[in-house]
Every structure is written in C-alpha cells, then in structure tokens.
C-alpha cells in the first residue's frame, strides 16, 4: 500500500484484493480466466479505477465486471478471458486500486498479489518429452484411463437422462436457458454508456499496447462518434457535435498512433492513454 495524490478518489475500506488465474496452469492456445476480486466494506455501486497489469504476453478475449452486495460488503469481480500463445512462465504484476482509505482519510494505492502462471504445452508434449520406454508408455496408459473414465461418465449421464425423461414425461417441457458464455470479443452492450465504452477501449489498449490494437481501438472510438468507413479524421472533426468535442485530443492521438513510425509508437500510445484519462466523465 503506497500513498498517492488524492484527486477525486472514492472513499473505500478495502478488506480483500486478490488476483488469481483459473486454471492455475493453463494450456497454450486455450482460453483461461484471470480473476480480480476486491471486497470493500459498505454498499458501493461502482468501482472504476482498478488498474490491470500489462497483459502483453496474453491475448485478451473478453472482460466482464460485476459488483455484488452481501453482509454489509460489496464485492467487485472482474474476469478477463485470455489466451497464452506460448508455453513457459508468465509473471503478471499486481492489479492496483487508487482510493482514499475511509478509515484514515489518506489516499492510498492498494495492490493485489502478483501472479505467476505456468503455461503448459499442447496434448502431444508429454509424448515428446518422455525419455524412457516406461515413461513413453505412461501417457498412453493415462490417455486410455482418461478415455475409460470419459466413457463411464457418458454412460452414467445417459442413464440419468433416460431416468429423468421417464419420470417427467407427462410434464410440459421446460425451457432451459442456455448457459451464457463469456463473450469472446468484448462487445458493448446496449446499456453501456459512452464513457464505459471508452474505458473498455482504454483497458484493451493498456493491456496490449500494439499497433493492431491501436487500430481496433481507433475504429471503436470513431464508431462511437458515428464516423463512417469513408470519412477521414478531418471529416469527422468537421461535424463533431459539441457533446463529443472532448474526444478531439483522443481522436487525434489515435490517428497519430495508427500511422506514426514504429519508433514513435510507444510515445503515441502513451499520448492516447493520457487522452483517454482526460475525457470528461
């Protein structure tokens, strides 16, 4: 916990702030989840300033945030769906939160735990790494055992289904809502406000500060102000309504980052992130 400058920070009593991966040892190329859980005392409607670490070694596939309230506490949960494209260890810095400690009145920066992820290879890797005859047989046996367990589980599920159908055949069929999966790509819902969408765009850019992400974010922000594919920045700025005038520095910064030299790209992205931060709430 470090002191930070207090500038319109929320007053919170932080009780728990954790950062975890599920599964803890994911497979390369398979999506997995990163979870941030922040428990604060009292009823808090929204928490906007949790800062994620740089996720440049992971491909971001989706992001979902919820706040629940129980027993006098509010629990903020953020689940990021990510994918690792290489094996080995990935060390992620802690997530941070800037807030005023409601107990002391001091501005603080709270940090979660850092995260150490070991990304495993694909299914063929155990065979490739075996160094003895017995060793090479073990994964095969393991597979056979897995297949057997799978077949048994399938048979059991079939039996259960049959029994259920026999017992409930006279009842009208229930409509079961399909499970809602995490969205593969973050798509703004109809209820998202302009600033929420901008915040998401900033989050994606901060997580993966690359040229291709800059271009995607540029498209998203241009769409936010109603720009068509046939309009240049000058066209957009010429007809920008007053309500969106605060986006001018951001639109300019994104244009620069999308087309500048490779040497200037990092600076240009920083300018974009500052412009995101300066957009009016």
């Amino acid at each position: 916990m470090q002191s930070v400058r207090a500038q319109n920070l929320p007053r919170l009593t932080v009780e728990r702030f954790t950062f975890s991966a599920k599964p803890v040892s994911p497979k390369m190329g398979r999506p997995f989840s990163l979870r941030i859980v922040l428990v604060v005392r009292g009823y808090v409607r929204r928490i906007d300033n949790v800062t994620l670490p740089i996720l440049s070694q992971l491909a971001l596939r989706g992001d979902e945030r919820t706040i629940t309230h129980a027993h006098g506490t509010s629990t903020y949960r953020e689940t990021l769906r990510v994918r690792a494209n290489r094996t080995g260890t990935i060390d992620l810095a802690p997530a941070t939160l800037d807030a005023v400690d409601a107990r002391t009145g001091q501005a603080e920066q709270y940090s979660s735990n850092p995260l150490h992820i070991v990304v495993r290879g694909g299914m063929l890797q155990p065979f490739a790494s075996a160094d003895s005859a017995v060793g090479s047989l073990l994964p095969v046996l393991e597979r056979i055992a897995l297949l057997g367990v799978g077949a048994l589980a399938l048979a059991f599920a079939l039996a259960l289904t049959t029994a259920y159908l026999l017992l409930h055949r006279r009842r009208p069929p229930e409509i079961v809502a399909p499970p809602v999966p995490l969205p593969l790509e973050p798509e703004p819902g109809p209820t998202q406000t302009r600033n929420e969408r901008l915040r998401d765009a900033a989050l994606v850019l901060r997580a993966e500060p690359t040229r291709s992400v800059v271009r995607s974010v540029r498209v998203a922000v241009r769409a936010l102000v109603g720009a068509s594919a046939h309009e240049t920045l000058a066209d957009v700025l010429a007809r920008l309504p007053d309500i969106d005038r605060d986006l001018v520095p951001l639109l300019r910064a994104l244009e620069r980052a999308a087309f500048t030299t490779d040497e200037d790209l990092a600076n240009a992205i920083q300018t974009c992130l500052r412009a995101f931060a300066e957009v009016k709430e």
Binding site: T232, L233, E255, F259, T261, D264
Partner: peptide
C-alpha cells in the same frame, strides 16, 4: 509538422 502521413494528407 509531422514525420508521418495520415489519411487526411492523401485525401486532401
């Protein structure tokens, strides 16, 4: 005053 070209330069 830029060292890179933007689409606006071309359109203009």
């Amino acid at each position: 005053g830029r060292d890179y070209v933007e689409p606006d330069d071309i359109r203009s």
